[in-house]
Each structure stands twice: as C-alpha cells, then as structure tokens.
Design a protein around this nucleic acid. Sequence first.
DNA 1: ACGGTACCAGACAGATCTGTCTACGATCGG
DNA 2: CCGATCGTAGACAGATCTGTCTGGTACCGT
Lengths: 197, 197
Amino acid sequence: MSAETLERRRESPARARILDTATRLFYAEGVHPVGIDRIIAEAGVAKATFYHHFPAKDELVRAYLEAEHGRQRAAAEMLRAASAGPREALLSLFDHLGETGAGPMFRGCPFTNAAAEYPDPAHPVRRTVAGYRRWSRELFRDLLAGCGHPDPEGTSAILMMIRDGIVVGSDLDDPDALRPLVRDAAVRVLDAPVPPA
Amino acid sequence: MSAETLERRRESPARARILDTATRLFYAEGVHPVGIDRIIAEAGVAKATFYHHFPAKDELVRAYLEAEHGRQRAAAEMLRAASAGPREALLSLFDHLGETGAGPMFRGCPFTNAAAEYPDPAHPVRRTVAGYRRWSRELFRDLLAGCGHPDPEGTSAILMMIRDGIVVGSDLDDPDALRPLVRDAAVRVLDAPVPPA
DNA sequence: ACGGTACCAGACAGATCTGTCTACGATCGG
DNA sequence: CCGATCGTAGACAGATCTGTCTGGTACCGT
C-alpha cells in the first residue's frame, strides 16, 4: 500500500465521522456499552467501511484516546504560550481543568475512564493511557523545573494527584464546590516546603 | 415476609459465596465484563438461588459496594483507635492508602471503577458511590476539625483530591514510586497556610 | 475504458448477555 | 407429616455483541 493511499485513508471524511461519533459516545457512555452498530448508524457509515478503516473496535478506542491526547497537547501549548511564565502556565492549566470539570458535558477523564474498562495493564489501550499520563507528568515536571522549583520530580507526581482528584471529584462530587478550591490546592502543593528526606 | 426470614436470608452461606465471588471478580475484572453465569459457576450456586437473593445484577453490584464501604469504615475506625490523635489518624489513613495501592492485587478504587461503568449519575450504583465519597470526605473533615485545622471544609476536599490521586496513580502509574510521596503530599496540604479568600 | 479504492446496505455466524422457568431434593418448624 | 423455604441443575427466550461476507455504486488516475 502506497504512502499516498495511507494518507488519503487517514483524511477520509468517513473515517472522521466514525472517530467524531465514537469520541462523543465513548466519552458520554463508556466504551463497552457503545456497540459498533450504534457508532456506524450515527456516523452514517457502512459496517464494511468501518472495518476498512479500523481493524477492530480496540483500535478505534486507541484512535479516540490518541486524538484526545493531541487535543490536550494543543490546549496545553496554547495556555503555555499565553502565560507570562512557567508558574502562571502551571496555575492556568489547573484553572482550565477546574473550568472544564464544571462544564455540563463533563464526565471525568477519558483516559482513566477507559482504563477502568480495560483491567489488563498490558492491553494496547492501557499502554495508550500510560503514554498520556507520562506526557502529563512530564509537562508538570518541566514547568516546575522552568520556574526553579527545588523538587520538580516529586512535586510533579503530587500535582498529578491533584489533577486526578479534580477530574474524579468534578465527575462524582459537586464540581461547583470544587472549582474555587482548585487553584488553592495547586498553590499549597507548589509552595509547600520540600521535606528534608 | 417475616423479620427472621430476612435475617436468615442475609446470613445465608450461598449468599455469602455469591458476594465473595462477585467481590473478587468485579474488582479484578470490572462489573460489565463479568457475567452472572461466571459468578454462579465460581460460587457453586444455582442460577435460581442467585436471583432468589438478588433481584438483579445491579443489586449485587450495590451489595458489593456497600460491603466494601463497611470494610473501609471498620479499617478507618481501627486506625483511628490506634492513633495518638486526629492528625496522626489522618496521616496513617494516607499511609494505609499508599500501602494498599502498592499491593499486587491493587486495581484502583472499587467505587470510582464502578462509577466509570455507570454513566448515569441517577443510577442506584452511582448513588451508592456518592454515599461512600460523602462518608470519606466527612471523615477527613471531622479529623481536621478534631486537630484544630482552620479550614476543615476546604482542606477535606483537597485531601479528597490527594486520595483520588493516590488510588488512580497507584493503579495506572508506578505505585512504588508514588508510595514515598503520599505522606509528603498529605502534609503539604495539611500544613499549608489557608488563603485569605 | 479499466483497475483500484472508497463507500453504502444489510445479511449472517457465533458467541455472548440477563432474567425466567421447570423440575426436583433437602431441611426444618409446627 | 406437611408446607414453606433454601438449594441444585439446566433449558430457554430475547436481546445483545463483534467481525465477516456478499453485492452493488461511484469516483479517479492511467
């Protein structure tokens, strides 16, 4: 198969319709409860077309998560560019997280939600989730290093805890009660004295 | 139906076998992927017996979560009793969380995992999850109030974020790297100056 | 004009799943 | 001894699900 063929296939409007529909349904209702039949019906696509673009449902799940990863990378890059410095970028990342979590369509983190449906850590979907989380943690770490934090490694892991807590809590508890605490939480972790250890 | 009948039914060994098996399988593999047929086969119980004790699968899921809630209540009470004061109790709760997360069978929080499989917030299973989270948050709040913290309300919500971050991270990232950071994270949140707000 | 590719429509196999049902044995209080 | 209850074993209906396959249409580069 030629490179142009692969390229054309990746840009196919049918493929885009499948991926858009899957993104909407997977995020709103979960992966396993949403069947292929439903996706192709709502995308207006034939079954053969679906299996032409995606060899199996799991590959569609992976593509859904990869696309989400791409969107988050772009959003993070925009926030970083609009911020005065690394510390402001970090804090606006958390503000953004709190705002997203208070939106009406928020249903938690697509990655952790998907991971909950794939118990096997060796599964390709789980590896995709792991890749996203690695990127997220490294983003925190690099911004911390950029603003001269004495412990970027450990603090990035603790910021990751805060991040997970915001997305889980915004989904399962009251997101409006959580939102005003988001920046406070990040600042507490950022400005706390690092233990001697 | 008499009160004794209900009591006998609740203590039935067949019911206990069903619940134990369901607990093991639901936690390890998720709720939807584990079918009734598999549960009754591994529990050594007839199908009619299952539907005699549980009107539907969702009720079994609820019972599984309620039982887990009970175990966590007992564990928290033990830790509280063994601690010198509320602050020590709080910190040992987090230590306990980190240790559990590093165990070989750890698969994340049973409640958030179950919630990820039930998108509808009005579903009985989701209400059960919400009840557990309310209890957990109030436990934090009361311990904070007990050790004279100036902002038990907001800080309990931030500790809840840390809690969620520990269970998610222990499942999806490297639990052994996370464990030494757990107490540090809790202390940073506990001892940070409360913003003027 | 022709071959390759993309696409639609839908039947189909084979394997799930939940929940109901029949039929029968064991135990135990009254 | 009798009726209620608890239990086992398993067939069954009805609705899923994934992935394959057939058949036909349309475009596009050569």
